[in-house]
């Protein structure tokens, strides 16, 4: 079987490109870090890949608003390439800053397969601070999300200052809920809805991750690539854990799907 190719976006302050590449490779993909400018200049073509990853980081320094300038880079330079990538049935994941860019670009939640319209945003945490802390996530089993298939819960770090999820209006909020766009929600260790610090940013409905209706386009604030090995867990010296970290399955699901459907 041919391993699917994953394009890991890099450049301009994208910081989690190496570990995201590592996670995809460990899951069986051929992952390649590609500079944004090489795509714009046509040196690299997104059409040659089956998976596109927008990693975490501080693209353009989070200046103006997190993810905003990166989103514009795509909007004004690569819009058609990206739309084609999506309509070809391929996979897109955005983590943290990547998720912020995706919602601002409008490719999430992608209501009615319109991937050009901003419906939600990720804004300043209620605490007003950047925070690094681990959070419990409950996965919506009714969601179509390819990446979280078979996963019931996750424990991952968040590392952001602008992760508060807000919908444009009540109708959007309702639709996200009812059409199962919500993939993951912040909960306490018992899996119940919870307040700060379990919900680290004050997101509405505790939303930590959403996908489009096909389940192929996925964005999340927590970092699955930061829990690939058990020693990444903050309490690995005191708990019985599998050698493999919980985040790994997210990447394996993507690679398995791409292997079966896209190569």
């Amino acid at each position: 079987m041919v391993a699917p190719k994953a394009l890991i976006l890099t450049g301009y302050g994208i910081n989690c490109d190496y570990e995201t590449q590592h996670a995809f490779n460990a899951a069986g993909a051929r992952a390649e870090r590609v500079h944004l400018n090489d795509i714009i200049a046509g040196v690299k073509n997104v059409a040659d890949y089956q998976i596109l990853a927008f990693p975490g980081g501080f693209s353009f320094g989070d200046d103006i608003a997190s993810g905003k300038v990166l989103a514009n880079k795509f909007k004004y330079n690569l819009s058609e390439d990206l739309q084609k990538f999506i309509s070809d049935g391929k996979l897109v994941i955005g983590i943290c800053n990547g998720f912020q860019a995706m919602v601002k670009l409008g490719i999430l939640p992608g209501f009615d397969r319109n991937y050009r319209s901003q419906q939600v945003t990720l804004t300043f945490n209620d605490s007003g601070r950047f925070e690094d802390r681990w959070v419990y996530l409950k996965i919506n089993s009714n969601s179509a999300c390819i990446f979280t298939k078979g996963i019931k819960s996750l424990y991952l770090p968040v590392r952001h200052g602008e992760g508060k999820f807000i919908s444009k209006n009540e109708a959007v909020k309702k639709r996200l809920r009812e059409s199962h766009h919500i993939v993951a929600q912040y909960v306490n260790e018992l899996g119940e809805p919870a307040e700060y610090p379990m919900n680290p940013n004050g997101s509405e409905d505790g939303i930590a991750a959403i996908c489009d209706e096909t389940g192929r386009i996925f964005g999340l604030m927590p970092h699955p690539e930061a829990f690939i090995h058990k020693t990444n867990h903050p309490r690995w010296t005191r708990e019985q854990l599998n050698e493999e970290g919980m985040g790994m399955q997210v990447f394996r699901n993507a690679v398995d799907y791409a292997e079966k459907k896209l190569v």
Binding site: N15, R129, D132, R235
Partner: peptide
């Protein structure tokens, strides 16, 4: 102070600045 610094980026964090049953 520690919470406001990203101590895990690059994916190789093993013993973190904050540990224990409540991290």
């Amino acid at each position: 102070v520690v919470r406001q610094y990203d101590h895990e980026v690059q994916g190789g964090s093993v013993v973190k600045p904050l540990v224990g049953v409540k991290n």
